[in-house]
């Protein structure tokens, strides 16, 4: 069994990681982003997509370094703007499968405006948001998802702002598909990502991930295992949460699919615009 898993892992690495890219990667030992990378590759493999047709765009931060390792069409854009570039790529060539990977600061602070508008617009894109509740690369400053009261490099007296719930924000902004997973619940995460890529319309997969180096260390969870246990204990499935009282859910977060609804996607709507414009032109 173990041998089979090793062989499968080797196959995926050879198939999807860039051979000419100098490893080791930039992330800290034990970082959750590596788990997300593995999940993303397994999700894509399960869908049988052609690498030539895949685009992965990122912004800036630890998550921004993910695309360089995978053998797709990849782009490492400016801070917070991955979705704007992805929008242009998708509209210019709708046959491409376009995904973005962003961090919590990237997607909801500097890129917050693009994020809610991409959800509203419902372009057929997949947004993977790795939420580690901190700015990791710059040294542990608080982000829009840093919990109230916690410590960071810029909130040493305790954080006085309240956190965004990214997945809930995406639901309200109109995304077709919204899910939340963690780097602890990995088999479930593979499926959540695969479903998001498949889904027509804007898909958001928020992934709770560990930054023990910058967040955990300052908040009594100094190693990956402690943070993994925290994800295990705080995560509540969407169905179970529906039966719980608000007080019971205090400090916890839901995992699973928060929204999966059908709306016409932007590219199919725009095709109608083209037909209408041509029709009016011919009538002249």
């Amino acid at each position: 069994m173990e041998e089979k898993m090793m062989a499968e892992s080797a196959r995926l690495r050879h198939e999807y990681l860039r051979h000419d890219k100098k490893f080791p990667h930039v992330w800290c030992p034990g970082c959750g982003i590596g788990i997300v990378l593995g999940s993303l590759i397994r999700a894509i493999d399960s869908l049988g997509l052609d690498k030539d047709e895949l685009v992965l765009a990122s912004g800036i931060g630890c998550s921004g370094r993910l695309p360089v390792y995978v053998d797709f069409n990849t782009i490492h854009t400016t801070h917070g703007r991955a979705l704007t570039f992805a929008t242009g790529i998708k509209l210019a060539n709708p046959s491409l499968t376009v995904m973005t990977v962003m961090g919590d600061g990237d997607a909801t602070a500097i890129g917050g405006n693009h994020f809610i508008h991409a959800a509203r617009r419902n372009l057929n894109l997949t947004a993977i948001i790795i939420n580690n509740q901190i700015y990791g690369m710059t040294g542990g400053q608080y982000s829009p998802t840093t919990p109230y009261g916690s410590n960071s490099a810029t909130s040493v007296y305790g954080h006085i702002e309240h956190a965004f719930s990214i997945a809930e924000l995406a639901v309200t902004a109109g995304a077709s598909y919204v899910a939340r997973g963690t780097v602890y619940h990995v088999p479930a995460l593979d499926k959540l990502i695969a479903r998001g890529i498949e889904k027509e319309g804007f898909s958001v997969i928020e992934i709770m991930s560990n930054c023990h180096t910058q967040y955990g260390r300052r908040n009594k969870m100094p190693d990956p295992v402690t943070m993994m246990k925290w994800f295990r204990d705080q995560a509540v499935s969407v169905s179970r949460a529906a039966k719980m009282e608000a007080a019971e859910l205090e400090g916890k977060f839901t995992i699973g699919i928060l929204a999966d609804r059908d709306k016409p996607s932007y590219t199919s709507e725009y095709q109608h615009i083209r037909e209408q414009a041509l029709h009016q032109e011919k009538k002249k």
């Binding site: 765009a57 782009i75 854009t77 400016t78 703007r81 704007t84 570039f85 992805a86 929008t87 242009g88 790529i89 998708k90 509209l91 210019a92 060539n93 491409l96 405006n113 693009h114 508008h117 725009y270 615009i273 083209r274 209408q276 414009a277 041509l278 032109e281």
Partner: peptide, 29 residues
């Protein structure tokens, strides 16, 4: 643009506007 098979999009700000045109150009348009 829609008459000639092209695409127009009004973005949420100018930062998004130039981001989108760079993306479209990378996709060959």
């Amino acid at each position: 643009l829609p008459k000639v098979g092209g695409t127009f999009i009004q973005m949420e700000d100018e930062i998004a506007g130039i981001g989108a045109i760079i993306g479209a150009s990378l996709a060959g348009v």
